[in-house]
Design a protein around this nucleic acid. Structure first.
Lengths: 234, 234
DNA sequence: ATTAAGCTGTAAATTTCCTTAAAATTTGCA
DNA sequence: TGCAAATTTTAAGGAAATTTACAGCTTAAT
């Protein structure tokens, strides 16, 4: 997770400071160098001052339409790809027309897992990839993002989308304890209100599907969260 | 996807940076080495500096008529084939006259699938083929880009254009899960806005036509996209 | 032993997908 | 040009998978 000079720079533009910060911290955690702007003018200033590899842009800004901002930016020569954030209801079709080039869009509310995945996808397409091979592995438990295949000791296992996301998050943080709050923020939509033990339910699903034999890899840290590790062979 | 030295070089000339980038990324994905120019003078500069195997040229340029640019280029000794991009309405006949030798043209808006297919066809004709045989095959399901023939276990199958494009995209990404968004962007015209389940409809058509027997090759990845693979013999 | 936290099965709610039919559009041909 | 056929797109009902809520039970900590 070392933030070296070569980690891609991301400009996050959202008028909701809390959300912008949430996104920024998730990006930093994923190995990017985020910068935050909370309005259009600030965004332009930062954009002109620095080079960014990608811009995450809310289409709803207080002082400026996100579309216009995008247009301003898209005229510069080495075009910076944009990931639009948009409300679910409207504008979806409008966005579709705009996402020409390396662009993409995510509808609010989204999960940070998804957002980071999209950013990675865009950068991969643009060629200035951060690195990751798209595979995660830990003691015989492997996941491949490309094929979406999951294996335990070679045996193929079928997971639903949420199961896949959860396991992927745990696995890419292997040996590190992650809190339930972190998991909820990352795997579920950031504004997900209810928590009627849905995380426990999915942990239960995962244990049944991928962690049914020794050595157990998914461990509960009571009062805190979960961790993937191998107790017998640390 | 390894971009080796021998992958054909393509010069993409379009004044809309977003579209030029879109084309470039699609070409890169297909194994070419694209270079982008957004106006006539820039194109000429790049053309003189480097050798290209093919030029993709929008006939509508800000500083120069695409036709004139084509004429300038066509005087050089080993003529570089040109794929013209043109608006649907007019100029069709004009283009016809210009498409000598290995040339061809595509009307806007086009699908990336189609564009890449045309580029491949031209290069094949010109003899400096990428190496791709123009055939894709996976567990008894074969497609030939040149003849547009599709076979399942040897038996010839008739597909419409869209069906062919969709299947070809899935097949050339065999074993990799592709998202619906990726499919929509690549197979349908790049400015296609709506998505009222048209993808599902075509998947349904394909299943009926080419995937009616075991082992099933087209699989749904719920909440994500589709993938072509053989579950029984992975 | 008490209490809080976590696990798991069941069922309801929701989402996603498939299929079919019909409308709209394009293409081919006379 | 204009009609007929083929293709593409939209729309709707229903089926199936997934997600969510919740209740009863188990486990761990003190």
């Amino acid at each position: 997770m070392a933030l070296n000079k070569n980690s891609p720079r991301v400009l996050v533009v959202d008028d909701e400071p809390g959300l912008a910060d949430l996104i920024a911290s998730a990006l930093k955690f994923a190995g990017f160098q985020p910068e935050v702007a909370t309005n259009g003018t600030g965004a332009i200033k930062k954009y002109l001052a620095d080079k960014f590899d990608i811009i995450i842009l809310d289409v709803m800004l207080p002082d400026m339409n996100g579309f216009d901002l995008a247009k301003k930016i898209s005229t510069s020569a080495p075009r910076t790809p944009i990931l639009f954030l948009t409300a679910k209801d409207s504008t979806e079709d409008k966005i579709r027309g705009l996402t020409v080039g390396g662009d993409d869009y995510v509808t609010k509310p989204f999960s940070l897992e998804e957002l980071v995945a999209r950013v990675n996808a865009i950068l991969r397409r643009a060629g200035n990839d951060a690195g990751g091979s798209g595979r995660v592995e830990f003691h015989g438990l492997e996941m491949d993002e490309e094929t979406r295949e999951v294996r335990r000791d070679g045996k193929l296992i079928d997971l639903t989308t949420t199961e896949f996301r959860l396991l992927h998050y745990l696995l890419s943080n292997a040996k590190k304890v992650v809190t339930r709050a972190q998991i909820m923020d990352y795997v579920w939509n950031y504004d997900f209100g209810g928590d009627s033990g849905i995380l426990e339910t999915y942990i239960s699903y995962l244990r049944k599907k991928v962690d049914f034999k020794e050595p157990k890899l998914i461990h509960t840290v009571r009062g805190f969260g979960y961790v993937i590790k191998n107790k017998e062979n640390p």
